[in-house]
Design a binder for these strands. Structure first.
Lengths: 127, 127
DNA sequence: TCTACATGGTTTCAAATTGAAACCTGGTTT
DNA sequence: AAACCAGGTTTCAATTTGAAACCATGTAGA
């Protein structure tokens, strides 16, 4: 059986759609360093809301990319960790984040050039 | 100046958010093979609507990742091509798509296991 | 001439997704 | 008792999405 993300009905589409998410990439990147508690993750990944972090982790758990373990400590402690399967992905996931950090200046320069020149214009063809 | 995608205010966040998109990854993957016309891309990338493809390409152009060239042929021909900057990204972008294709079965198995066992349950801690 | 079709889009509008903020459930310290 | 911790869920308004319709231009067919 051959899978192809370019085919609409292919189940890989569902997976790709899930991975291609800012929060997923950031969560996996952090968990690569080691297990982490919910609120710790929340503080590390600035700007993520509780709801979204909760949903993201739940999906990642279902997909077998992270595990969730609760400890019956004083206030309950919940620790999330990356699985071996998740680890095979995190390298690639982090590469995207690193690309953004490395190439942000080139992208911003391109945006400035685009906005300055063709910004509001209607597309002129080969004029 | 140090950029960090984990910081809320960092401009790399905007870039990461743009890249972390299913359609962006698929478009870049296809354009890596060579320039392509609008409707050709639309047919290759099954399931993408005209509006979304149009928006995606416009953003990628502004970000300096693809170029748009219109030819005054019979029905106008518009060709999109990847830029050198875009090419530095496409390797990574495609790696995500390939990961999905390679690991889809492991993911589906994990989902089935999760649904069968803990699916509707309330989280039981370390029981 | 009237209809139909091709390219490359934009517009419209209902439906799904998101995010901020409030709330909840224990249990603990002050 | 009031307030705070962890780890969530719920609520609701606003943004984003997607399907479908429309538009401009030009060609070919009946």
């Amino acid at each position: 059986m051959i899978y192809d993300v370019y085919s609409e009905a292919c189940p890989t589409r569902l997976v790709l759609d899930r991975l291609a998410d800012k929060w997923v990439l950031l969560v996996l990147g952090r968990l690569t360093e080691g297990p982490m508690r919910f609120n710790h993750l929340r503080r590390e990944i600035e700007g993520v809301s509780q709801k979204v972090l909760s949903q993201t982790l739940k999906r990642l758990e279902r997909d077998g990319l992270v595990t969730r373990q609760a400890f019956p400590t004083v206030p309950v402690t919940v620790e999330y960790a990356i699985t071996p399967l998740g680890r095979t992905l995190s390298e690639t996931a982090q590469a995207l984040a690193r690309w953004a950090e490395t190439n942000i200046e080139a992208v911003m320069a391109a945006q400035a050039a685009y906005d300055a020149q063709a910004g509001g214009q209607t597309s002129r063809a080969t004029t």
